[in-house]
Amino acid sequence: MMGRNSGQIDLFNSMIFERLMPKDHLLLKIDSILDFSFVYDLIKDKYSNITGRQSKDPVMMLKICLLEYLYNLSDIEVVSRIRTDVAFRWFLGLNLDDDVPDDTTISHFRAKRLGEEAFENFFTEIVKKCIEKDLVKTKRFMITARMSLLM
């Protein structure tokens, strides 16, 4: 079953994030420009409505892949950064005490849940939007999208 984060960051965490995150942080800019909610409709057929345990939020999982691209991180490295980086947690909609997906969950989502073609289509669209808004440089665009499937 497809899981969704509540999207609600409690008041305590919100105050911490606001004080610690620079107002011009790249992730704040991306969040203000991109609406990731389209993902739910596009992948709802990849999840059962009846059986199975609840998955991690697919929007959060795609955002994790975007973090890997932006910061040139592996699955293991991005998990480590999510645990300690306030900006990463804020971008993913995680409170400071929320659990972080492990590296195998990320690779399973990318390779098995979405599959290579769907992942590449989603990811390419997200990165294109970032490039159009001049938030991401185009140097690594095509190479990294393909390489991240191998991580």
Rank of each mutant, 00 (worst) to 15 (best):
N5S: 13
S6E: 03
S6Y: 03
S6G: 06
Q8W: 00
I9L: 11
I9F: 01
I9G: 01
D10Y: 12
L11Q: 15
L11Y: 15
L11F: 13
F12C: 11
F12D: 10
F12L: 14
M15E: 11
M15H: 09
M15F: 08
M15P: 00
I16K: 02
F17S: 03
F17Y: 15
F17H: 06
E18D: 13
L20H: 11
M21N: 12
M21Q: 08
K23I: 03
K23V: 07
K23Y: 06
H25R: 10
L26R: 15
L26H: 12
L26C: 08
L26N: 12
L27R: 06
L28M: 10
K29W: 00
K29L: 12
K29E: 10
K29V: 13
K29T: 11
K29C: 08
I30E: 02
D31G: 00
I33E: 12
I33Y: 07
I33K: 12
L34P: 00
D35Y: 01
D35E: 07
S37Y: 08
F38C: 08
V39P: 06
Y40E: 06
Y40S: 07
Y40D: 07
D41Y: 04
L42R: 15
I43C: 15
D45Y: 03
Y47Q: 06
Y47M: 02
S48W: 01
N49W: 02
N49P: 01
I50E: 00
I50T: 12
I50Y: 00
I50W: 00
I50K: 07
G52T: 04
G52D: 05
G52H: 02
R53M: 08
R53C: 10
Q54T: 14
Q54A: 09
S55I: 02
D57E: 06
D57W: 03
P58T: 09
P58E: 04
V59C: 05
M60L: 14
M61T: 06
L62V: 12
L62H: 07
K63L: 12
I64Y: 04
C65P: 04
L66S: 11
E68R: 15
E68Q: 15
E68L: 01
E68D: 01
E68G: 13
E68P: 04
Y69P: 12
L70G: 08
Y71H: 14
Y71S: 13
Y71T: 11
Y71F: 15
N72H: 13
L73A: 05
S74E: 06
D75S: 13
D75I: 09
I76L: 14
I76C: 11
E77D: 14
E77K: 15
E77S: 15
V78Y: 07
V78S: 10
V78A: 08
V78Q: 10
V78P: 09
V79M: 11
S80R: 15
S80I: 06
R81N: 13
I82F: 02
I82K: 04
I82H: 02
R83P: 09
T84M: 09
D85S: 14
D85A: 08
D85V: 09
D85K: 13
D85Q: 10
V86D: 06
A87G: 07
R89V: 03
R89K: 14
R89I: 02
W90D: 01
W90H: 02
W90N: 02
